[in-house]
């Protein structure tokens, strides 16, 4: 009967008292290569169990300093990340690169501002972060609970104008940061670690789930995916989902954005409303994507609206 009891306790624990595990991100860094790590976010929507930790956060350790990629969804998340990084190395975190302004990648910034960390972000995205950040933060608090966003603030900060591509040296470790304007967002940053030939591409690539498009220029984005595909890399870290080693894995992102764009353009020409498209059920093509339904319902109206009255 022991097993029975254990299973019973587990079932009760995970289903009846999910609040036990709240505010606990259970972060486990995955080693990509020597001194290159990534925390892979939950492959799901933001909810009150994952606390918004749905995107990937990376860190690269050089001989002198450490670079972190993306701040994550909140102050608490960023604190957890920093703590774990400290257990790997005593070196200072010198840079935080925020790939773009979306909440799940940027809202941990407030934690890094308490340290002596240089924050690197595309100017256009910094503007959006400051302009819309409080609104998104309020919506997130309402949706998944205040407790996840304790001390999370949208602060402006000292910002050094950069000329891209930016080269950094973490101590025998060269990093190259490139700016991809008006693709998935107004300014996505791609971070390359030269030694391990690892590319952190932010949300220009989604792995294992439907990509989101609210600020995208889809034509540029498609071209950028082709460009990324042609580059040399051993490991590619998408904004969401697992580490990519094979170029074919870039195709689902490209296929989805092509499909949703085509659907929205056709709708804006024929006058069909998103509601009517939804009423037909999910198209077969997108059913194989994780989070297909949620993403489809959210993004299609935005895209149709954009094409319709612009």
């Amino acid at each position: 009967m022991k097993i029975f009891n254990i299973i019973l306790i587990f079932i009760l624990y995970f289903n009846v008292y999910p609040s036990f595990s709240s505010n606990d991100f259970n972060l486990v860094p995955i080693k990509v290569s020597n001194n290159v790590f990534v925390f892979v976010g939950a492959n799901e929507d933001i909810n009150n169990k994952n606390g918004g930790a749905i995107s990937n956060t990376g860190f690269i350790i050089g001989d002198d300093s450490i670079l972190v990629i993306d701040a994550g969804p909140s102050y608490i998340y960023a604190s957890n990340v920093i703590e774990i990084i400290k257990s790997f190395s005593d070196l200072p975190i010198k840079y935080l690169v925020v790939t773009h302004h979306h909440a799940d990648h940027s809202f941990g910034i407030s934690r890094y501002l308490e340290m002596d960390v240089e924050i690197i972000m595309a100017p256009a995205e910094l503007k959006r972060y400051l302009k819309y950040g409080n609104r998104s933060l309020k919506q997130l608090r309402d949706l998944i609970g205040e407790e996840w966003f304790l001390d999370t603030k949208i602060n402006s900060f000292q910002y050094k104008e950069k000329k891209y591509p930016v080269s950094l040296n973490l101590g025998n470790r060269n990093i190259l940061i490139e700016l991809y304007e008006k693709g998935h967002s107004d300014g996505d940053l791609i971070i390359k670690d030269k030694i391990s030939s690892t590319l952190f591409v932010g949300d220009l690539v989604f792995s294992g789930r439907a990509p989101t498009i609210p600020h995208a220029n889809i034509n540029n984005w498609k071209n950028y995916i082709d460009l990324i595909s042609k580059k040399n890399w051993n490991y590619l870290i998408p904004g969401h989902g697992n580490i990519i080693k094979n170029k074919d894995e870039l195709l689902p992102t490209k296929n989805w954005i092509t499909f949703i764009d085509k659907t929205a353009k056709e709708a804006s020409i024929s006058g069909i409303s998103a509601l009517e498209i939804f009423n037909e059920g999910l198209p077969d093509f997108i059913k194989e994507y994780k989070l297909a339904k949620e993403t489809w319902y959210r993004d299609l109206p935005i895209l149709i609206n954009k094409y319709e009255f612009d």
Partner: peptide
Amino acid sequence: SDFKAGAELSEELSSSPTAKR
């Protein structure tokens, strides 16, 4: 209903989809 749709969020928040509560 005839139709069980998900949510339509503001443009900003929809960038990081949220689960239904």
